[in-house]
Structures are given as structure tokens and as C-alpha cells.
Design a protein around this nucleic acid. Structure first.
Lengths: 247, 247
DNA sequence: ATGTTGATTTCGTAA
DNA sequence: TTACGAAGTCAACAT
């Protein structure tokens, strides 16, 4: 039986003893609930890098998919975390409640040691819907494929994700004179990196086709920075201003 | 008086009426506490992109710095969010508890509408310590500056963050023969993008110096992918395998 | 498993 | 404020 088909429920312990908190957390892991713990803790991480965070009051969330998040009262990003797929464990030792989250490939370990727990909660519910997002690079691609003239009059798309030795080109096509065109799409204002990316594709495709006429490269984005603009000119690449959505 | 100097505290309401929940949230915003709400909600976002999420049980966190996070029971990343600096507001309308988080530059709006609230909590505490992180690109740079021979015998660093028309070079220096060297550092295994970046810097510096001898470009990273390796060869760039830390 | 790229990337820093 | 690049980036998708 999965948590998803249960009626939504939330349980809370306030200022529990560490052992009481441990039991609630262990039970929540067992039941595959979302678990939150707030209290005074230290945090240690070791893996791709290493970090240590001395004692402070923080909010820890454990998800049933194995993700772990440690949030302070500032910032959008967690101060420490573990991605989905980790194994969570909880134990009491030396007057501390220790939450350990382990991962392999790469080996990574997150240790949160609570000296004091102010609250433990567990949450179970259902969430059947996926998010619908508009305004992505995918939308920009569809916009151009539906109306290629937005790029330029006479443009004919021939392939998306066309493979080259340097990677997959967003849109590959021909202009009105039959010249090959590589199109790189970005949903927002771009800098030099996007120009370099386009240049790589144009270079690779030129070698691949050993075409008589040079391959054209067109960057499509709402706008470009000055430096990107200079790079475009330097390498005879072109720019078309276009946004992901009409509105 | 700020929350930071208060004794840590946590308050919780279970299955509150919507109006009761609204009061607790409004009070938490006023007191600059961290606030969490768990219940059945829909989520709408409009700004750099747009999204809609139909009804489901989710965990919402509001931080006193203006950040907002909407978490489902899966994934490390929030399904919707708002960065620090936003204004949070809460109100009841049409049998729903509505949390609105607004931002400007760019104009962005996050709307979370709860049909049912299972729990509201507020958290106040202190967190005086900063995280200490080891194993970053900064560490790799320091390692090379302390022992330039790790790069190659006779290498002399002359500048870090040296500016070029294409951006700032991680380390700029000379080899034992006096040739200019551009070093690009990456803390982990790299792909084609890092090679393009190095190439941009070498190009720019070559023009800038209009040197008699070609400028050398060296990529320093633990390892490179096959494609990156081919790109390095294509552009006469070099690679030195090195990790951010000794251990 | 690794490679490649997009992302409402976020975050920090410098100009 | 904008620009540029790092990040324990994460996440999706392909090989």
C-alpha cells in the first residue's frame, strides 16, 4: 500500500525528547511520509566536496524518494542536501539525534546531528497532477517549426536535434538559396557561452558536410549581451530576436 | 527586535480553519518567522515563464527573506518557488486560503490557493554560523598557485582573473620558455563547454597580445569526456589532470 | 552508468 | 542594475 492513496494526514510532535523524535522519524521513513524536523543541529557533508556547518536552528525535510533538504531561514537553496535515491537512517547517540542520508555513485554522506528538536512532523498525501509549464526553449522551437518565416523568409526546417560530432543541433534546415543553416535556441537573453555553442555546431557540421558553401549559424533568443554580439560578428554568425511565446 | 536573538520557538496548528490558518500565517510574516503550510492546493506561477499545477497535497515554505518554496513529495527541487526579495501576502477568498508572493524586476507572481490546510507551523531561531565548503574551484586555484609545478615544471602564474575581451581568465601565466599560458580550471570532469570556454579565452588573448608565439591554453580538471578530448586536440589545447584537493 | 544540455536554474562577484 | 561564470548545481533524455 502506498502513501498516495491514503487520505491526507499530518502528525506533529512539539518539543519531543530526542528518543521520541527518533521514533517518529523512523516511523515516517517506514511509512514513506514526508518528514520535517526543526531544531538546533550541526550538519556535515562529505562527497563530491565536503562541508561543515556549526550549530544553529534549521529546518530539515526528508522525502520518501530519498531526497533530503536542510534549510536555514535565508535563501532559496538549501544549505545542505542530498538528491533523490538516498537511504535515510535515524539514531540517537551521545545526547544527539542523528539523521544520516547515504548515496552511492558517487559516495556521498550527509549527517545532521540535532542537539535539540523543537518539532517533528510527518506528512502523507496525494499529488496526482503534473505541472504544466509554458515559456521554455521547447516552446520556442515549436513556435519556429510552426512558422519558419519567423526565423527568416524561405527558411525550411529539416530536422531537430540533428546529431553532429560536436553534439545535437536544435534546428537544422536550409535557407531559400539551399544553404545549410544551424539554429541554436535560447529562451532568454544570452551571453558568450551560447555563441561558443553555436560556433561549435557550425564548425562540426561544416567539416561533416565539407559543403561547398559555408554553413550559416543563427542564434535565436530574446536578446544578446554586448560581448556575445561582438563574438557573433567575429565568427560570422547571425542573430534573430524571438521570444518563446507570442504573448 | 529581530527573530535572530529570540530563543528558538516553533508553533503549530493542526487542521485549522482557513481563517485561523490565515491569521497564523499573517502573524508569522509579521514576526519574520519561517512558515510552513501543508495541505491541498493549486499553484499558479507567472513571470519569466508560466505554470499551473492542479490540486494536490503539497508543502509550502515561506522565508523571512522573501523566498517561497512549494515542495511535492518527490524531487530535490521545489515544483514552484519564488526567490528571496519577494513580498508575501495571505488572504481568504471563496473558501480558499490564498498565499501570494510577488517580485519585481522581473515581475513575477506565485499564487498558492489552499482548499484544505492540514498544518501551519512557524519557526523562529538563530543561525549564526556560515557553512564551510571544501573542494571548490577556488581550492583548485589555490592549490596550483601554491605549487605551480603541479601544472607543469617551470610554470609561473602572473595573474588570476585576468581580464580579456572574452572574459576573465582563471589563471594567466608563462611557461619556462616565456610563452603566455591561459589556464581554465574545473573542479570536476568536464565536457565540450569547458573546452569552448578555454578556446574563447585563448583566442581573445592571442588577439589582445598579438603575440609572436601562440598563446597556450591548458584545461585543468580531474578528467575530460571523449568529445571534450577531441575538441582539445582539434584546437591545440592541452589538458592537465588535477583535483581540487589533495586527499 | 555516462554524456550532453536546459533551467522560472540560483548564487556570488565585479563593473 | 547588468554581466559573467561557478555550482556538491539538478533534472531530463539519449547512448
Amino acid at each position: 500500500m502506498t502513501a498516495g492513496i491514503q487520505p491526507p494526514q499530518a502528525t506533529t510532535l512539539e518539543q519531543p525528547a530526542l528518543e521520541t523524535a527518533r521514533e517518529a522519524i523512523a516511523d515516517g521513513i517506514e511509512r514513506e511520509a514526508m518528514i520535517t524536523v526543526f531544531g538546533r543541529c550541526t550538519v556535515d557533508y562529505d562527497g563530491r566536496a565536503s562541508s561543515r556547518l556549526e550549530a544553529g536552528d534549521r529546518h530539515v525535510m526528508l522525502k520518501p524518494d530519498g531526497a533530503a533538504l536542510v534549510h536555514t531561514n535565508e535563501g532559496q537553496q538549501p544549505v545542505n542536501w542530498q538528491p533523490p535515491g538516498c537511504e535515510h537512517a535515524v539514531r540517537c547517540e551521545d545526547d544527539a539525534l542523528v539523521i544520516e542520508s547515504l548515496r552511492s555513485t558517487p559516495d556521498e554522506r550527509l549527517l545532521v546531528s540535532f542537539q535539540q528538536v523543537l518539532q517533528v512532523s510527518t506528512f502523507a498525501g496525494s499529488d496526482p497532477n503534473e505541472i504544466a509549464l509554458v515559456g521554455t526553449e521547447e516552446d520556442l522551437r515549436e513556435r519556429i517549426l510552426e512558422e519558419p518565416a519567423l526565423l527568416e523568409s524561405g527558411f525550411t526546417p529539416l530536422a531537430t536535434e540533428r546529431d553532429t560530432p560536436a553534439g545535437a543541433v536544435d534546428i537544422y534546415g536550409e535557407d531559400s538559396t539551399g544553404r545549410s543553416v544551424v539554429v541554436e535556441l535560447k529562451r532568454r537573453r544570452v551571453g558568450p557561452d551560447a555563441v561558443s555553442q553555436l560556433r561549435r555546431y557550425v564548425d562540426a557540421l561544416s567539416r561533416d558536410l565539407h559543403a561547398d558553401a559555408a554553413v550559416r549559424g543563427i542564434l535565436v533568443a530574446p536578446s544578446v549581451t554586448d560581448r556575445a554580439d561582438r563574438l557573433l560578428a567575429q565568427h560570422d554568425l547571425e542573430f534573430v530576436s524571438l521570444e518563446p511565446t507570442d504573448g
